[in-house]
Design a binder for these strands. Structure first.
Lengths: 142, 142
DNA sequence: TTATTTATTGAAAATCATTTTCAATAGTAT
DNA sequence: ATACTATTGAAAATGATTTTCAATAAATAA
């Protein structure tokens, strides 16, 4: 069994929740999906393989997965919440192409360090951060 | 007349729009307001001084002010769009206290530079960016 | 195993910020 | 002043997300 299922099960046990087929299937499909899926998109994927799983359940399950750290939530400014894998993936920032809508994940340790410095200068204790750079990607820029 | 009104008027003339009392009053109150107001908050402020100006008009006017560069729009992740002064204010990032909700505006040129470097490395042409650091502020951290 | 308890499900309705509609109103140009 | 049409504001629509609630199904106890 993949580590992710163990994490979910442990979280469920700790909280006195219940292991259900739906939660298992939704996690399964989420894990098999490339990053940055909206609830709507995920629901369609789920429905394709498992009839009878409702949209509400998908939504609620994603919230649950967020709570137990298996997925991260991001809103790139279009009012739609997108979920991305979190377990086993380190923190990253996003380059967002405003033409084709593609997201590129990037990482620059120097920026991370400077952010901590910045926070410290303001006696601010950071818990998380979000850096989004909007623009035109390589493909669209030609 | 403040420069901001000139900018709005010029934008209005260029686009073949019309100068209205409502637009003038809403800009007036927006300018007199500290940064990061939601449409709802601004509407209440407007209503206090000028009866008969509707919520829709406030909302539409803020969109107009965004278009002509007088205000910037930000969503800190709670699904509410907030408007902040843009003319005469340089770009800045935000430290957001998740306890008291206060926003601190910060600026670190080195971070800006590194972001451009990062974009360049991915052949990405940045148009704007958004950096938000969530955490606990000085006051709340005691 | 069976009974009991109660978390979960899913369809539908509710919520809430934002956007659109549309008839009445009011700038602007002629 | 007249004509033209952008703007207004109230109400309705939209669309993502959340809640409701009766039916169902996990988990635990008997």
């Amino acid at each position: 069994m993949r580590k992710e299922f163990q994490i979910l099960d442990e979280f469920i046990r700790e909280k006195g929740l219940r292991h259900t087929l739906q939660r298992e299937k939704i996690l399964d499909i989420f894990l098999a999906t490339e990053r940055h899926v909206s609830a709507e998109e995920l629901y369609k994927l789920v429905k394709k393989r498992f009839h009878g799983i409702g949209y509400t359940t998908v939504y609620r399950t994603m919230k649950l997965l967020s709570e137990c750290g298996l997925c991260g939530e991001t809103d790139f400014g279009d009012g739609i919440l997108r979920f991305e894998h979190k377990y086993g993936h380190e923190h990253h920032d996003h380059l967002i192409c405003t033409k084709c809508g593609r997201f590129i994940e990037v990482m620059k340790p120097e920026i991370e360090k400077l952010q901590d410095t910045l926070a410290k200068q303001h006696s601010f204790t950071p818990t998380k951060h979000k850096l989004e750079i909007f623009g035109i990607c390589r493909k669209c820029g030609k």
